[in-house]
Design a protein around this nucleic acid. Structure first.
Lengths: 354, 354
DNA sequence: CTGAAAGCGCTAACAT
DNA sequence: ATGTTAGCGCTTTCAG
């Protein structure tokens, strides 16, 4: 039985609403004397406001929602933390949902989020359209929504995303300068989805643009964990003839890159002498691995902060409803030890192409 | 403006409570005809129940709380996921709070959790007493609480924890068999706390029990991230004379172990030839590092599942209130590549001690 | 089998 | 300057 306003009112000998105005610091001029008495009583009884009741009354829950595909990925965990920091400072709480990279669970998360009457939502969705009926109805009900990464089709929401074209083209240029001719891409695909992701599409475009060749064989698909990447890469390597094997790999994220790195070592390959590896996200571990991982950095902390501010502004109605933005953050390549010059004898006429 | 029961009732031509009973599958015998009409209307309008209103009415929010010290630690992220899986299956939602290993934030998390009227709480607290007034008042208000890891002083709650004595003694025995005489412990301490943790106390006891020596110099304290551990270890190594340096290190968790590993490589030390390293938690990355990390495994998934079941049972009042349990899970050493025989020439009379 | 009414805790309007 | 009242959306008696 938690303490209610009414109980405090009884103890302090005032009406419930008086307690409410005092505790919420409303400017209604209350006498200093009753004010003290009320606050003292509230503290003594250990009063905690009931957010459900307040949310119901106000139509505002002072809570935002966040949906991410994988909390085990430190990138998203850090994103959540950065988001929370800003929300916190503005009196908002954060409800985190992990869709576990499954389209089905994603729908479930959306349902739960809307049941919770959250004031606004930040979401990084796997859904290629990014526009399920559930998300749509949230938006249509007037809930501010900010999408991260993917641009939802035909939906009037703010979008914050990284421009990977820059980071990826730097990565490919870097590899090309080191003499790599065949670069593979390792991608974690969400359960139940087969569509190519944005990062991969950039990758393919940039590879072709830089004059290198790309074949479907250089696109390695797997699940979204380190173990998935490791197994997929090992299987791939063993089943691919030497002439078709890549000398460099770019992975969808650092986690998958670590899996590939482990796989290479299992196969007796040296990094970067035999295979160069590049991750994406530049998470803390990239710089702490025994072989430091070259990675494409996104400025996710800035992105999280910007998303939070936008969401708060929308909730306070200080932004015109109809007008939405797409904010694009830069990415850049952080070169470390997992990339190096091609050392291995290749079957390609390498000299001719230099 | 989300859809309410009343609106559905209006559309279906019935009373709001009829809709409620039908949608909640209560056994009140409603005619099959109105039932269909109501369900159809609810679906068509995209009805989502308002959890705030329901929670307020029922006094049950169907939501549990979780407080962890660091969501960036994959151990806790996975714990959260395992917990959620069980709660999900039982209709409960999970509200995750990250105390960021700060005692001050921990209090804040407790406040927020209780404001949210959660039905029950799972918490892994840094607070050495584990018994702040806030936690106490939650328990006294009849909220079921399960503590993970630490046993709160004088508080009647269920506790689930790992018995590290086994894992740590296996680790020390393992190191001793490999010829190590000086073993250091690297510990991440929460902001604003200086008390020795349980894991360290076990470590010290086991070291002494096994006949090795332990000096305060072998206790390295740092923050709770990889970077903290790396910097602390580098500084430690450089400021410690060769004769006092350890040949093996046990870290509070895998993350810190990775930081130490990185530091060793920075210092030009080889693993395990110069320094052996053991982590705790056996997270996925331990098995995927270029130098696989020997680590002490906890069965956290079982622990999370057990904690969830206990909490649910308590919420359903199927357990006598007064009676609490302390459940202890085993730990065990997983030996990988980061530990090996002492190769370095030591200044100790090593032969004599063999 | 279905409707009407009350109330969970809180806050905004209105009254005193 | 404080008290009274009503109602947010939902569910649970109790009547019809």
């Amino acid at each position: 039985m938690p303490v209610t306003l009414k109980e405090i009112a009884a103890v302090a000998g005032v009406a419930p609403n008086t307690v409410s105005t005092i505790l919420n610091g409303k400017k209604n001029w209350t006498s200093e004397e009753t004010r003290k008495r009320v606050i003292e009583a509230a503290n003594r009884l250990g009063y905690k406001p009931n957010r459900l009741a307040r949310g119901l009354r106000l139509g505002k829950y002072l809570t935002m929602g966040l949906i991410v595909p994988d909390l085990l990925n430190p990138y998203y965990a850090l994103f959540a933390r950065s988001l929370e920091k800003v929300l916190d400072a503005n009196g908002y709480d954060l409800l985190i949902e992990d869709s576990e990279a499954s389209l089905a669970r994603e729908q479930l998360c959306l349902s739960r989020i809307s049941e919770h009457q959250i004031d606004g939502l930040v979401c990084s969705l796997m859904d290629p359209q990014g526009c399920s009926p559930k998300l749509k109805s949230l938006v249509e009900n007037g809930r501010p929504v900010v999408c991260i990464g993917r641009v939802p089709a035909e939906l009037n929401v703010d979008v914050f995303r990284s421009d990977f074209s820059q980071g990826i083209s730097e990565a490919i240029l870097h590899l090309k300068e080191l003499g790599h001719l065949k670069i593979a891409f390792v991608s974690g695909l969400p359960e139940g989805q087969s569509e190519d992701g944005q990062r991969f599409r950039f990758f393919r475009t940039m590879v072709l643009d830089s004059g290198l060749s790309f074949t479907e064989k250089l696109y390695i698909r797997c699940g979204h964990s380190m173990a998935h990447a490791r197994e997929a890469f090992t299987k791939y390597w063993k089943s691919t003839p030497d002439t078709e094997r890549p000398t460099a790999v770019i992975a969808l994220n650092d986690l998958l890159a670590i899996g590939v790195m482990r796989s290479c070592l299992d196969l007796g390959l040296h990094i970067p002498q035999d295979v160069s590896i590049i991750g994406i996200d530049n998470t803390e571990i990239a710089d702490n691995l025994p072989t430091r991982l070259t990675s494409i950095a996104q400025s996710y902390e800035e992105m999280a902060a910007a998303a939070a501010h936008r969401l708060i502004a929308r909730c306070r109605n200080s932004i015109t409803q109809g007008q939405t933005d797409e904010v694009i953050m830069p990415t850049r390549l952080i070169i470390r030890e997992s990339t190096g010059r091609v050392c291995k004898h290749t079957h390609e006429p390498q000299i001719a192409s230099l």
